[in-house]
Amino acid sequence: MNAHEIYSVEQQDYDRAGSASAAIKLLLRQKGIDKGIIRRVAIAAYEAEINLIIHSEGGKMELTIDDDMITLEVYDRGPGISDVMLAQMEGFSTACDVARNMGFGAGMGLPNIRRNADDFVMASRPSIGTLMVMNFYLKPQDDADKRRMGI
């Protein structure tokens, strides 16, 4: 069941956009993860991958599957986000025309990620880079809540 995989995503690599998320989805399916959870991870991973391609100078997606949850860590080499709160607002976007022509840049990416993940944290520093961590619980939310509280 347990697994750990790292996927590299390159800046402006529009041709391969979605291939890392497709690989993640396939791996989760092979592991027999619940279909609804796979769908949420796939949507969040795909949005994160598109973000790396459009906005970052390249980065990585690190997937960890353990008994209780799936964790997806997405980090890049820059350029960082100056206002993380603003970036998470629905409708806010700094995407270029190429991204818009692909059907993205509507300012829905980060809200979509936050909505699909059970936990979502994001930190960024201009000129350093951005880190996002998402957790998807494999067991009922109540158990997860208990565990987080150390019960």
Binding site: D15, A17, G18, S21, K25, A42, I43, Y46, G103, F104
Partner: peptide, 10 residues
């Protein structure tokens, strides 16, 4: 474009 197909896949 291919992103439409990828979106459908997800």
């Amino acid at each position: 474009n291919t992103q439409v197909i990828r979106t459908a896949e997800m």
